[in-house]
Measured scan of single mutants.
Amino acid sequence: PDDLEKRARELLKRGKNPDEIREYLRNAGYDQSQAEEALKRAL
């Protein structure tokens, strides 16, 4: 898994919901489609 996916998994483990994770990834400078893909793979 790429770093983005790892980060998404990490956040899920900490109890973040998908919307929070999307926002976090966007704020971290990733584009929307990258964030969506990583989140899908992590779920």
Rank of each mutant, 00 (worst) to 15 (best):
G29Y: 02
N17Y: 06
A38G: 05
R41G: 06
N17R: 10
L39R: 00
L43M: 12
D31R: 03
L39F: 02
E23T: 04
E10Q: 06
L43E: 04
A28P: 01
L11P: 00
Q34S: 10
L43P: 01
I21R: 00
Y24L: 15
L43I: 10
G29N: 02
R14W: 09
I21G: 00
E37P: 02
D2G: 11
D31H: 07
K40E: 13
A38I: 13
D2V: 11
R41K: 13
P1T: 12
N17P: 06
K40W: 08
R7Y: 15
L12R: 05
L11V: 01
Y30S: 03
A28V: 07
L12W: 02
D3S: 11
G29P: 01
R41F: 03
D2S: 12
Q34P: 03
D3A: 11
L25S: 00
P1R: 11
G29D: 02
R22I: 15
E5H: 12
I21C: 00
Q32Y: 12
A38K: 01
K40Y: 09
K40M: 13
E20K: 03
Q34E: 13
E5S: 10
R14F: 10
L12I: 12
Y24T: 10
E23W: 04
L39Y: 02
A35G: 03
P18I: 12
D19E: 11
E10R: 04
L12D: 02
A35S: 08
L12G: 02
L4K: 03
Y30L: 10
L25Q: 00
E5T: 13
K13W: 06
R14M: 15
L43V: 07
A8R: 01
E10P: 00
E5L: 15
D3C: 08
A42M: 13
A38S: 04
D2Q: 11
R9C: 07
E5Y: 15
I21E: 00
D2P: 09
E20W: 12
Q32R: 11
Q34G: 05
Y24W: 11
D31A: 08
E36I: 05
A28R: 06
E5D: 10
I21K: 00
R26D: 04
P18W: 10
N17T: 15
A35T: 12
A8W: 05
S33K: 13
E36R: 03
A28I: 11
A8T: 12
P1K: 11
P18Y: 09
P1Y: 13
R7P: 01
E37Q: 10
E37H: 07
I21T: 02
K40T: 11
N17G: 10
L25F: 15
K13Q: 14
L43A: 06
S33L: 14
R22L: 15
P1C: 13
R9G: 07
A28Q: 12
A42Y: 04
E36W: 03
P18F: 10
R41I: 07
A8P: 00
A8I: 15
R7N: 07
R41H: 07
L39P: 00
E10D: 13
L25W: 04
E37R: 08
P1N: 11
R7W: 15
Y24V: 12
L4D: 02
N27I: 11
E10C: 08
Q34D: 11
A28D: 06
P18T: 06
P1D: 13
R41Y: 04
N17F: 07
G15D: 02
K6H: 10
R7I: 15
N27P: 00
A38P: 01
N17D: 11
I21M: 01
K16M: 15
L25K: 00
D3L: 08
A28W: 09
N17K: 12
R41E: 05
K40S: 11
A35M: 09
L25C: 03
E36A: 05
K16H: 14
A42N: 02
Q34W: 08
E20S: 04
D31L: 07
D31G: 09
S33M: 14
S33Y: 13
L43T: 06
L11E: 05
A42V: 14
E20A: 05
E5K: 07
A28E: 14
Q34F: 07
S33D: 14
L25P: 00
N27E: 13
G29W: 01
A38N: 01
P18V: 12
D2R: 09
D2A: 12
Y30E: 02
D3H: 10
R41Q: 07
A35N: 01
S33I: 14
K40R: 14
G29H: 02
A8F: 06
R22S: 05
K13R: 12
P18E: 09
E36D: 11
A38F: 10
R26N: 06
E37F: 02
K16N: 08
D19R: 07
R9A: 10
D2W: 07
R14G: 14
A35H: 01
G15R: 01
A42P: 01
D3K: 07
L4W: 06
E5C: 11
E5V: 15
E10S: 04
L4I: 12
L11D: 05
S33V: 13
R41T: 06
E37C: 07
E23A: 07
L4C: 09
N17A: 10
S33E: 14
Q34R: 11
E10N: 05
R14Y: 10
Q32H: 12
Q32S: 13
K16R: 08
P18H: 09
E23I: 06
D19T: 08
K13L: 13
K40H: 13
Y30C: 08
R14S: 15
G29L: 02
G15A: 02
R41D: 04
R7V: 15
L11A: 05
A35K: 00
Y24D: 09
K16F: 15
N17L: 12
K6G: 09
K16Q: 08
G29F: 02
E36H: 04
L39W: 01
P1V: 14
E5G: 07
D19V: 06
E23G: 03
K13F: 06
I21L: 03
K16G: 06
A38T: 07
E20G: 02
R9H: 08
G29V: 01
D2K: 09
D2E: 12
N27H: 09
L25M: 10
Y24R: 04
L12P: 01
A8Q: 00
L12E: 02
D2L: 11
K13G: 13
P18R: 06
L43R: 05
K40G: 09
A35W: 07
R14P: 01
E37N: 08
N17W: 05
Q32F: 12
A8Y: 03
E5R: 07
R26V: 14
Y24K: 04
P1F: 14
S33H: 14
N17H: 13
E36C: 07
Q34V: 13
K16S: 10
L4P: 10
N17I: 06
K13H: 11
L43C: 09
R7G: 04
D19L: 05
L43W: 05
L39C: 02
S33F: 13
D2M: 11
L11S: 02
A28K: 08
A8M: 12
N27M: 13
R26F: 10
E20L: 04
G15Y: 03
D19M: 08
P1L: 14
K13D: 14
A38C: 08
L12A: 06
G15V: 01
L11T: 00
N27V: 09
A35V: 15
N27Q: 12
K13N: 13
G15S: 02
D31I: 05
Y30M: 08
N27A: 14
A35F: 10
I21H: 00
R14E: 15
D31M: 06
R9N: 07
D19K: 08
A42F: 08
A38Y: 04
E5I: 15
L12Y: 05
G15P: 00
A42I: 15
R9P: 00
E23V: 04
E20V: 04
K13M: 11
S33Q: 14
Q32V: 13
L25Y: 04
P1W: 14
L4S: 06
R26L: 14
E10Y: 03
Q32W: 13
K6Q: 13
L4V: 09
E20T: 04
L39A: 02
R22M: 15
A28N: 08
P1Q: 13
E10I: 05
Q32N: 11
K40L: 11
R22K: 10
K16D: 07
Q32I: 13
R7E: 09
L25A: 02
K40D: 09
S33A: 14
D31T: 14
A28C: 11
L39T: 04
D3Y: 12
R14L: 15
Y24C: 09
L25R: 00
A8H: 00
Y30H: 06
D3R: 07
A28L: 15
Q34A: 13
A35L: 14
E23H: 05
L25V: 01
Y24H: 10
R7Q: 14
D2H: 11
D2C: 10
E37T: 08
K40F: 08
E37V: 08
G29Q: 02
D31V: 05
S33G: 13
D2F: 10
R9F: 05
E36S: 04
S33P: 08
L11G: 02
E5W: 15
E37Y: 03
I21F: 05
K6A: 13
A42T: 04
L43S: 06
A35D: 01
